[in-house]
Simulated assay, not measured.
Amino acid sequence: MNDTIRLGDGTSLAYRLDGAADKPVLILSNSIATDMTMWDDNVPVLARHFRVLRYDTRGHGRSGAPPGAYSLDRLGRDVLELMDRLEIRHAHFLGLSLGGFIGQWLGVRAPERVDRLILSNTAPWLDGPFEEMIAALYDGKPMTEFAQMFLANWFPARMRETDAATMARFHAMIMKTPPQGLAGAFAAVRDADLRSVLRLIDRPTLVIGGAHDTVTLPEHSEQIAAAIPGAQLAILPAVHLPNVEMARAYEERVLAFLGGSGS
């Protein structure tokens, strides 16, 4: 079921529900420059065990893309507003990359809404040329150049050379991302720094990293897992989107942590 809600600030947020209504809810949060369809390969398996709730982060997909800088606080509150509107008191949460930043925020700021937390291919803080990329977006730099950058960062060379269908699917996602939405999300990552508060997360947590990830390094995953009491760490032989690159192994690790049966 696809639908949208109107958030408190007037922005529309698109979402989709899959799986039986009597199953525990698992929320999936997408990476920057993608939309909820980045999880298409995984939902058939996950929806056997969970009521899977996906949404397009503001600035992405079918959600609204208001101008200006977004904040991690705003992105986190978007999730809470969505849960409130759908009358979901608590849920498991799996966020990848930007979605993992949002997951960290939820673990710190709204732990009572989170059952189990999975932080995938993310970091508590990132240093990068965000100001330059934001300026380039507002100056009209072609999205094709950003698409080339993202695909090179997300997938191994062999996959980019041999899996034309997947590359075309993700290239289309990037090209559909509104430039001001991408700029707003870059600002949220630029300004985020959760290093000093990660230890406050008290939810059962699994941290997934990619051994060959050059965006959010394996060391970032190790840093998060070391800071969160009792967190588990899994480093997979993948780049930045292991849910796509090695979907079955990724799903097995997620289900093992969540209990498989949805419990």
Results as ranks from 00 to 15, higher is better:
F50A: 04
D127L: 13
A168S: 14
H60A: 10
H212Q: 07
R48P: 03
L82T: 09
M167H: 07
G259L: 00
R158V: 11
W39Y: 14
G61H: 11
G8E: 13
E219T: 13
R109Q: 13
D35F: 07
I235P: 02
I32S: 10
T4C: 00
I88Y: 10
G210K: 03
D78K: 05
H220V: 01
A225E: 13
M1R: 03
S221F: 03
K176V: 00
R85T: 14
S71G: 13
A234T: 02
L28K: 07
R158C: 01
A33H: 05
R203V: 04
I5H: 01
S71M: 07
L82V: 09
A192T: 13
G128S: 08
Q180E: 15
A65C: 11
T216F: 02
G210Y: 07
D193K: 03
P129C: 07
F150W: 14
L53A: 11
S12K: 03
L200W: 09
N42H: 06
T122W: 06
L82D: 10
G262R: 00
Q148D: 15
V45R: 08
G8M: 00
I134P: 03
G140Q: 12
P204L: 04
I102S: 05
L26V: 06
Q104D: 04
W125F: 15
S31Y: 03
N42P: 04
L198W: 08
T205F: 05
V25L: 04
W154M: 13
R203K: 11
L96P: 01
Q223L: 14
A211T: 07
A14H: 14
N153H: 12
F146P: 09
A225V: 08
P179K: 06
I228Y: 09
S12E: 11
M167C: 12
P44G: 04
D202G: 14
Q180C: 14
L26D: 08
P142G: 10
R48S: 08
A247T: 10
A168Q: 14
Y70T: 09
M246P: 00
E131D: 15
G107K: 03
M38E: 14
W105L: 00
V244H: 01
N153C: 14
E112A: 13
N121Q: 12
G210I: 01
E161G: 06
A147R: 14
P156A: 05
L98V: 08
W105V: 01
A172R: 15
R16E: 15
D115I: 07
I5W: 03
E245H: 02
D40F: 05
G100I: 04
L96R: 00
Q223R: 12
L53P: 12
S29R: 00
A69E: 15
D193A: 04
